[in-house]
Design a binder for these strands. Structure first.
Lengths: 164, 164
DNA sequence: TGTAACCACTTGCGCAATGCAAGTGCTCGC
DNA sequence: GCGAGCACTTGCATTGCGCAAGTGGTTACA
């Protein structure tokens, strides 16, 4: 996503920052998968992102203010990536993308369970999730409800169902 | 957007269809600008899309069921592109993209007026707009309210304000 | 009836982005 | 001290993007 500056249209500007095949995948994995380091993002990537592409996207997303990077106090060579408030506000967008894909593409059953919950929960759920992300990434107080836990539990249940 | 089939995740599938810098721009212009032919899309493109890229995107979007193409009864060499129901259901997604871009990028004032209206109107406005698109593109009955007209009027008012 | 403009693309070519595989240099555990 | 882990980087081939020019049919007008 080079800064091309094609026009001042808000949709275009969003596409200039996020309109490629990997940026939102990386944000999705940090957001819904809680992958916080380069290694986790690389090894557990559902889509098999290449290492150089991942490095490039982490750099770009950090540069344009969607991610922050800090050293891990436990492992001196590890870096922890966190979402910024701007990235957290992509939750409704990703929820809509998931809903659209669920309806108009052919998603796998297990992977669309979370999309279904997100769609059914609507804005109330998204806001609760965003509060939780602010806790996990920005140091805000822990909210009462853990949407992340709910999504994860539903996903694992679907996985178990398939394994049987 | 080649069909890469990286994973069955709905977000990934949506990105595989629409995750590039031009596909959603084309849909935006058809949807909000009512550009219905190749020539209109090319000449009035705010971002200056290249002719071969436009041809390619129209072909792809038609192939994957987001657009339909039919001859213009008035001009034998003209083709009219229409949105399908799947594309019309991208309205909330584009509205969120516009809202995010308006908040987190630096949009031009005139071009963000429509985004502001879309955001303030919320799902009720989006649904009214989708009904109108079904009239314009799918032959459904004309709804009472013309969101398209409202958006256009606000945009032109903003343009006039700038011209002064 | 000729001709100029219009229309929907296509082609050629240089450059940038993508993707794979391998490599680098530091750090941690033992 | 040494192998495994970590966060990237590098080289190279393939693919996609973007500009400019071209193509072949159609319409409008003199």
């Amino acid at each position: 996503m080079p800064q091309t500056g094609r026009s001042g249209c808000p949709i275009n500007l969003t596409l200039e920052q996020l309109g490629d095949r990997w940026s939102l995948i990386v944000i999705r994995d940090i957001m819904f998968g809680n992958r916080r380091s380069y290694g986790e993002l690389l090894a557990q990537s559902e889509e098999g992102i290449a290492s150089n592409i991942l490095a490039d996207r982490l750099k770009r997303l950090t540069a344009c203010g969607l991610l922050t990077r800090r050293p891990d106090p436990e492992h001196r060579q590890k870096r922890i990536y966190s979402l910024t408030e701007a990235a957290i506000q992509l939750v409704p967008l990703l929820a809509h993308m998931a809903a659209w894909g669920r309806r108009h593409a052919r998603p796998s059953k297990e992977l669309s369970v979370r999309a279904e919950l997100l769609e059914k929960g609507g804005p109330a759920l998204w806001n609760a999730f965003m509060d939780e992300l602010r806790h996990l990434h920005l140091g805000a107080p822990r909210p009462a409800r853990s949407v992340f836990g709910e999504l994860q539990a539903a996903y694992e249940k679907a996985l178990a169902r398939r394994a049987r």
